[in-house]
Simulated scan of single mutants.
Amino acid sequence: MAAPALIALAHGSRDPRSGQTITALVDEVRRMRPDLRIEVAFLELARPAFGKVVDKLVRAGFDEIVVVPLLLSDAYHAKVDVPGAIAEATARHEGVRICATSILGLEPVFLEVLDQRLREALKAARVRELDALVLAGAGSSDALANQAVSRLARVWGTRHKLPVTAAFAAAAPPAAGEAVRAFRAEGRRHIAVASLFLAPGFLPDRVTELATEAGAVAVSEPLGAHPELARTVLARYAVGAVELVPV
């Protein structure tokens, strides 16, 4: 019996860099598990659409599908959009079992990826000294999702023995520029910003723009197609595949 197919499901963006990055991440997952049928899909704004990918897998003979949401925050997209898309696809394909795993989330190991991206940005900017950090995420109207970013920021600050502020690109204060200016008001001048985003797009670009205007010495690129993220996708898949096993 074939293993369940894996759909790596991203939100989607009109920015082509976003889709390219998500595709590169899924390619990394495929390299790690060439034995699995692995597809990429998007909820909106990009192709292939989730429903079309499910249709393709069903035509190929798969009756079990594990969906791994490529989301960092457990907010609206995770709680509403993903279950809705799966319910719609399941209703169209009687007898096909589709389950969603936990989102990628904010795993502590992702701090290693943040550090790597920030080192790359510091090297490019020829910065050797830091006295404060800002961790910039997307932001949400869901307070619990924002609190998760703030908790990760505190862990990151302890790790580097530097003051850290969480900032958000939308829906919640402070913005990245505000966070940088607050540190500068304290007399700090070497402030770097880490982009807690999966892929490039409008919001990460906005973070970079605002932080740079406010005086940040460097802003990192999003997490991107890193092996740690690929391993987390496969870890989520493993749990989902077990849940599909009949009791």
Rank of each mutant, 00 (worst) to 15 (best):
I7N: 00
L9G: 02
G177W: 01
D35P: 02
V242A: 15
D142E: 13
E186A: 12
R92I: 06
T23D: 15
A182C: 01
A176E: 10
P163N: 03
G201W: 06
I22W: 00
V29W: 01
D115G: 10
H11G: 04
I65C: 08
E178K: 06
G139T: 06
D55L: 10
R37Q: 12
S141L: 13
P16C: 11
M32L: 15
A175K: 13
P204H: 02
V180F: 04
P48H: 03
Q20N: 14
P173V: 10
E228M: 09
R126H: 13
A8Y: 03
T23S: 15
A49F: 07
H11L: 05
V164G: 00
W156K: 03
R189P: 00
T212G: 05
L133F: 09
A75H: 05
E44Y: 09
S195H: 04
A121I: 13
G12T: 10
D81W: 09
E112S: 06
R181Q: 14
V54K: 07
E88R: 15
L104D: 05
G12Y: 07
V207A: 05
M1P: 11
R184A: 14
T90Y: 02
A41T: 11
V53Y: 08
A89L: 11
L234E: 05
K79V: 01
A125E: 14
K161F: 05
A166S: 07
A192C: 05
A176L: 11
E39K: 02
E209W: 06
T90C: 03
A172F: 06
A179T: 07
V29D: 01
V219M: 00
G61M: 07
V247K: 12
H160C: 06
D55N: 13
P83N: 11
H77N: 10
A60K: 13
A211V: 11
L6G: 09
I103Q: 10
V233G: 00
L70M: 08
T21F: 06
D27M: 01
V239P: 00
G224P: 08
A136W: 00
V193H: 00
P173L: 11
L70C: 04
V53G: 09
P163V: 04
A5N: 09
H93K: 08
L114H: 09
A238N: 05
D131H: 09
V109P: 02
R151E: 14
V58H: 06
A167G: 06
D74S: 12
G157R: 01
P200A: 12
G19Q: 13
L198H: 05
G157C: 03
G201F: 05
A78W: 00
Y76N: 02
P174M: 03
L111I: 12
V109W: 09
P246H: 09
A121T: 14
L229S: 00
L122R: 08
P200T: 05
A78K: 01
E94L: 13
G95F: 07
T232N: 12
L198T: 07
S220K: 01
G177L: 02
P222C: 10
A230M: 03
M1W: 04
K161E: 15
A121M: 13
H226D: 14
G84N: 15
L130T: 08
R181E: 15
G157Y: 01
P34H: 01
Y237G: 06
S195V: 06
N146I: 13
P83E: 12
Q147C: 02
L133S: 04
I7Q: 02
F197C: 01
G240I: 10
A46L: 12
I191Y: 11
